[in-house]
């Protein structure tokens, strides 16, 4: 995972609650055995007027002009502003992969589905939870100023808008450390290999049926 560095990016408003992972990246694109290349099919069903197929060149497809990411300046958005329970549904990690591949690095919402949130943190996509009232206010500012941008600083846990106003957010300390340093979580867990082996030895005595071989 690449280290998460401070940046300023355009905020795209996606004004609906309960955006599920089937919308973020529809199932036909889950057939890929790669981690990359999902960006052109992000929100495929909302973004295009036809039904997309894997492997298809998306440059010639008819776009839905009403969909926010098909409008300027949001094609360059790096921050997605969303409503509650973003990322509900399937556990597909292809959802954060698709958002990242499109260029989104931060999603702001009043709440996220658990698995999506965990998947995002493991891939360097930052899920920022803000109070619903603040999210409402951000939707208003984006509507008033197309191209509205926010500066994101994970180190200080702050968003800053062009007027200088800031909002704080909280990320789980371990996930934050991994994001800031681009750490490999598996490598960190393997530092506790002795503890895992000790657990297994104890467990084998307590519950031998779990160790049939």
């Amino acid at each position: 995972m690449k280290a998460f560095t401070p940046f300023t990016g355009i905020v795209a408003p996606l004004d609906r609650a309960n955006v599920d992972t089937d919308q973020i990246i529809p199932k036909q694109f889950l057939k890929s055995i790669q981690r990359t290349g999902f960006g052109p099919n992000l929100f495929d069903g909302w973004r295009y007027l036809d039904a997309g197929e894997p492997g298809q060149d998306c440059s010639g497809r008819a776009e839905n002009p009403d969909f926010i990411l098909n409008q300027e300046p949001y094609r360059q958005a790096q921050i997605l502003l969303a409503r509650d329970n973003f990322g509900c549904g399937s556990s597909r990690e292809h959802a954060p992969w698709a958002l990242l591949d499109f260029g989104i690095r931060v999603v702001i919402a009043p709440g996220f589905a658990d698995i999506f949130q965990s998947n995002s943190l493991k891939n360097g996509l930052l899920p920022v939870v803000l109070e619903a009232a603040i999210v409402d206010e951000l939707f208003r500012r984006v509507a008033a100023t197309p191209g509205y941008s926010l500066a994101v600083d994970l180190e200080s846990g702050r968003l800053r808008d062009p007027g200088g106003e800031t909002w704080s957010f909280v990320i789980d300390p371990f996930a934050r450390e991994c994001l800031l340093q681009g750490l490999d979580e598996i490598g960190l867990t393997l530092q506790h290999a002795d503890a895992i082996r000790a657990y297994e030895e104890r467990r084998r005595r307590e519950a031998p049926w779990l160790f049939p071989r």
Binding site: R35, G89, S90, S91, R92, E93, I115, S118, N119, K122, N123, E185, I186, T189, L190, A193, I196, E200
Partner: peptide, 30 residues
């Protein structure tokens, strides 16, 4: 790596869906 892993909770097992990074994490570290 499937959200409907919650099914197995019917047995009094703690069962839940995970993403692909966690699939790799379980394979590598249990």
């Amino acid at each position: 790596g499937d959200s409907h892993t919650s099914t197995h909770g019917a047995f009094g097992a703690l069962a839940f869906g995970i993403g692909t990074s966690e699939v790799e994490h379980v394979l590598a570290t249990q």
